[in-house]
Amino acid sequence: MDVVNRPLPKDFIKTKTKSAPVLWIARNCRATNGREKYIKKLMEYVDVHSYGPCLNNKPFPSDKSRLNLMSEYKFYLAIENANCEDYVTEKLFDTLSQSAVPILDGPPSYEGFLPTQRSAIFMDAYPDPKDLADYINFLDKNDTAYLEYLSFRRDALDKSIKDRLDQKFIDNWSDTMAFNEKSSYCSVCRGVLPWWAYKNDPTKRQSNETFQEKKDVFVVDNTCAKRGKWDYIDNGPPYHPDWTPRSSDEFTRPNFYVNSTEQQPSHHAPTQVATTVV
Rank of each mutant, 00 (worst) to 15 (best):
257 Y>T: 09
117 Q>N: 12
274 A>C: 10
214 K>C: 09
161 I>S: 01
232 Y>M: 06
74 K>G: 01
250 E>I: 08
202 P>Q: 09
209 E>H: 13
95 T>F: 07
45 Y>S: 13
101 V>F: 09
147 L>T: 10
171 D>W: 00
175 D>T: 05
174 S>P: 03
226 K>P: 02
261 T>K: 14
65 S>R: 12
182 K>T: 14
110 Y>N: 00
274 A>R: 05
153 R>A: 11
53 P>N: 13
270 P>G: 12
197 A>F: 08
90 E>V: 10
213 E>K: 02
12 F>S: 09
214 K>E: 11
106 G>H: 10
146 Y>G: 11
121 I>Y: 07
77 L>I: 01
221 D>A: 08
50 S>P: 12
209 E>V: 12
77 L>E: 00
96 L>S: 00
181 E>D: 13
273 V>R: 10
225 A>D: 11
261 T>N: 14
193 L>D: 15
132 L>G: 06
153 R>W: 05
73 Y>V: 11
136 I>P: 07
52 G>F: 03
262 E>W: 07
183 S>F: 13
169 F>Q: 03
245 P>S: 02
66 R>E: 13
59 P>S: 07
249 D>Q: 12
60 F>N: 06
29 C>F: 01
154 R>L: 15
99 S>V: 06
197 A>M: 14
59 P>G: 00
178 A>V: 07
268 H>W: 14
268 H>S: 09
65 S>C: 05
155 D>T: 02
132 L>T: 13
132 L>M: 09
28 N>A: 13
13 I>Q: 11
126 Y>C: 08
126 Y>R: 05
215 K>I: 11
42 L>T: 13
163 D>Y: 05
106 G>S: 10
81 N>A: 10
277 V>P: 03
152 F>R: 04
72 E>Q: 15
153 R>V: 08
146 Y>L: 08
49 H>R: 04
51 Y>N: 03
243 W>Y: 15
130 K>L: 14
174 S>M: 14
63 D>V: 00
181 E>H: 10
176 T>C: 05
116 T>D: 07
149 Y>G: 13
161 I>L: 07
211 F>I: 10
184 S>F: 11
72 E>P: 00
87 Y>A: 02
180 N>T: 10
34 G>A: 02
177 M>Y: 14
41 K>Y: 09
141 K>P: 01
1 M>R: 03
106 G>T: 09
11 D>C: 04
213 E>P: 03
158 D>L: 13
76 Y>P: 04
83 N>K: 02
8 L>A: 13
100 A>W: 02
88 V>A: 04
246 R>P: 00
42 L>A: 08
245 P>Q: 05
122 F>D: 04
36 E>D: 03
235 N>W: 00
216 D>E: 05
263 Q>D: 13
35 R>S: 01
241 P>M: 00
208 N>T: 04
156 A>G: 07
77 L>V: 06
131 D>Y: 04
141 K>L: 11
189 C>W: 01
169 F>V: 10
86 D>F: 04
196 W>K: 12
179 F>H: 10
17 T>V: 07
73 Y>I: 14
